[in-house]
């Protein structure tokens, strides 16, 4: 599965546009990590637990996006966009969306 955030893939033609596909997830870290992170707020520095949390969530959102694309017979997702929002405290909501397409073979 080819995933890009540009609208065309150099050297390849889009045969079929299959429309919007989306992947989203809401995840939380356990409370111990939350407490450590709030301590870290005093000293500053990278909040590793949250970097990790967001990265995991982003991976999962992308994975779900590709699952949707595969399910409708696409072989690439173009113009992928990410958005993050906080729905609940300590939980991260990751959303990825793009256009599923069928590209010709190289």
């Amino acid at each position: 599965m080819l995933v890009t955030n540009i609208e065309t893939v150099p050297g390849r033609q889009v045969i079929k546009h299959l429309g919007l596909v989306q992947g989203s997830t809401v995840r939380a870290k356990h409370i111990g990590r939350d407490i450590l992170a709030s301590l870290k707020n005093v000293f500053g520095g990278e909040l590793k637990a949250y970097t990790e949390l967001l990265q995991e969530s982003r991976d999962e959102a992308l994975d779900r996006l590709q699952q949707q694309a595969r399910a409708i017979g696409a072989n690439a997702v173009l113009n992928v966009r990410f958005s993050t929002s906080s729905v609940a405290q300590g939980a991260a909501e990751l959303f990825a969306y793009g256009t599923a397409v069928v590209l010709d073979e190289e």
Binding site: T25, V26, R27, A28, H30, A88, Q89, A91
Partner: peptide, 11 residues
Amino acid sequence: ALFGGRVKSYE
């Protein structure tokens, strides 16, 4: 949020 993981109810 206490245990961490996927918050299914918000998904």
